[in-house]
Design a protein around this nucleic acid. Structure first.
Length: 499
RNA sequence: GGGGGCAUAACUCAGUUGGUAGAGUAGUUGGCUUUUAACCAAUAAGUCCCAGGUUCGAGUCCUGGUGCCCUCACCA
């Protein structure tokens, strides 16, 4: 069963214990601790000085009366040299029990080897954690199998430096976006993850059950409706980095749980959201340390994603939905006759009765013909009002609603509205949705949200940005799996079949 | 859910027309006081994803299943 307790290592562990050594001590027996990167950076000043280093041994060369170790910590790697005549007899003998993958502490003197490499010349070392499983051993390849890397991310992280770096950069991107919000006087909030009624997006939810209350609950598919309640309450600028859950297929762009940042601001509209989204994306690109384009008139950073280069500089391109639709589909979205002909030509079923179904069909054509052409960064704005239940219709033409979607790298990265705040119209649209046979549509009207609107939601703009996808484009990572520490996977199959 | 591909030692991979299972690395043992994928010698290690089938004989061929990858569908 526990075949990851390697027999050879168990033997070493036994030897350590026989010698009275704790293989899992609670404390580092030496005072202080320096990171490998610090030691390397300050190698000159530290020459000849005593230092303490802790980390995992991932390389070992030379053996006899001398051993070179590669010790890795969070900051990087440094070489350690352990020599017989500088160690106690006990410490030297204990090298026999040292395997790759073990975590150790070293006390020693900073100096240089004959070939000039900055190295900690140990005067003492201790086992901090005896590893019982082998780390990946192939010196040229390491751990490359995608499935293993994801399933054993804890190994992947200490073996593949670039992976760790990517996650750290993801964190920096999020931090940079948070700072933009704070600069604009936004407040960071947390709203419930367990929703009695799901809404704010079109997606199937995960459902769960509250035992004590004996009620069905849903993991949120979006935080939207709660955040807008906050605006009703007078919190005029709020944002939330929200983990959301959608019960859908898994693909290179989809994970059942993912992170989006949603933000809402009173007394602005979709236009204001466009400006802020632009600022957020550019701040994220800067945090990702994307290279600046030379000779550009405004600061422009270059993202390389799936072999394409994207120029990120303000202002982003802006396309009106109807215009770009006309260009790529070849007819006006409001020209019912032409649209019906197109649909037939495409073999798409004729839409059912009513505006809602008609515009859903139009949007199907949009997704089919226009979205693949949107490389980005580009805002598409003024969407058909009928398919935007949470967006406010335009004052001068209620066929269209104040909404944009932001595309980059061939993916939809953001979605924003001039928030619908007319409680009666909102109720109407909710009821229409509930009647929709689409299994993705919400199944009941969130009457409490309608009531909140009845108290008065100030005019507002709101936006949601898919963090994982944004990080993919900025870091040039093809699969969402590789920007998530622990992407969703089916359970590992048991080894031998049980009788 | 449809189509295609992959699954062999701890890791990375070979394995011919079907004929007793291989390498490098890591491990173990021994040697070596300046290595950088250290080196030298010896050595152990596999339910060839699982279950059936064809065959004298299956890692190899067939059927079914499982996992992963790609693709389409789904997914604002």
């Amino acid at each position: 069963m526990a075949d990851f307790f390697h027999p050879d290592r168990l033997q070493k562990l036994e030897e350590l214990r026989t010698a009275g050594t704790d293989a899992y001590p609670a404390q580092v027996p030496y005072p202080g601790r320096e990171l490998a990167a610090t030691l390397l950076a300050q190698a000159e000043e530290l020459q000849g000085q005593q230092v303490v280093l802790c980390g995992r041994v991932l390389g070992r060369r030379g053996y006899g009366k001398l051993a070179f170790l590669d010790v890795h910590d969070q900051s990087g790697r440094i070489q350690v040299c352990l020599q017989k005549d500088k160690l106690s007899e006990e410490d030297f003998a204990r090298l026999k029990q040292l395997n790759l993958g073990d975590v150790i502490a070293v006390q020693g003197e900073m100096s240089k080897t004959k070939v000039g490499e900055d190295t900690v010349f140990g005067t003492g070392w201790t086992m901090l954690t005896k590893a019982l499983e082998n780390p990946p051993s192939d010196k040229t390849q390491g751990l490359t199998d995608g499935e293993l890397r994801a399933r054993r991310r804890y190994v992947d992280l200490f073996v593949n430096e670039d992976v760790r770096d990517a996650y750290l950069r993801r964190g920096k991107i999020i931090q940079a976006m948070r700072e933009v919000f704070l600069q604009h006087d936004y407040a960071e909030v947390d709203t419930p993850v367990l929703h009695p009624i799901y809404g704010g997006a079109n997606a199937r939810p995960f459902s769960t059950h509250h035992n004590a209350l004996d009620m069905e609950l849903f993991l949120r598919i979006a935080p939207e409706l709660y955040l807008k309640r906050l605006l009703v309450g007078g919190m005029e600028r709020v944002f939330e980095f929200a983990r959301v859950f959608r019960n859908e297929g898994v693909s290179m762009r989809h994970n059942p749980e993912f992170t989006m940042v949603e933000f809402y601001q009173a007394y602005t509209d979709v236009e204001g959201m466009m400006t802020l989204t632009e600022e957020l994306v550019l701040a994220a690109a800067e945090a990702a340390e994307l290279p600046l384009e030379e000779g550009a008139t405004t600061p422009t950073r270059l993202a390389t994603f799936r072999g394409e280069t994207f120029r990120l500089g303000a202002p982003f391109e802006r396309l009106r939905y109807a215009d770009t639709f006309r260009e790529h589909v070849g007819c006006d979205p409001q020209d019912r006759e032409a649209i019906l002909a197109k649909l037939q030509e495409q073999g798409i079923d004729a839409p059912g009765e009513g505006d809602y179904n008609y515009w859903k069909a139009v949007n199907a054509l949009f997704e089919e013909h226009v979205e693949p052409t949107l490389r980005g960064p580009v805002f598409v704005y003024d969407y058909p009002a009928a398919i935007c239940p949470l967006a406010k219709p335009l004052a001068n033409d209620p066929t269209w609603a104040g909404r944009f979607e932001f595309f980059l790298g061939g993916m939809e990265l953001a979605n924003a509205f001039s928030e619908l705040n007319d409680p009666q119209l909102q109720l109407e649209k909710f009821e229409e949705q509930v009647q929709d046979i689409d299994p993705e549509a919400p199944n009941q009207v969130d009457m409490d949200y309608v009531r909140a609107l009845a108290y008065g939601l100030p005019p507002a703009g709101g936006c949601g940005i898919g963090i994982d996808r944004l990080v993919m484009v900025l870091l040039g990572v093809d699969s969402i799996r590789d920007v998530l520490l622990f992407p969703h996977m089916r359970p590992e199959t048991e080894g031998p079949a049980q009788a």
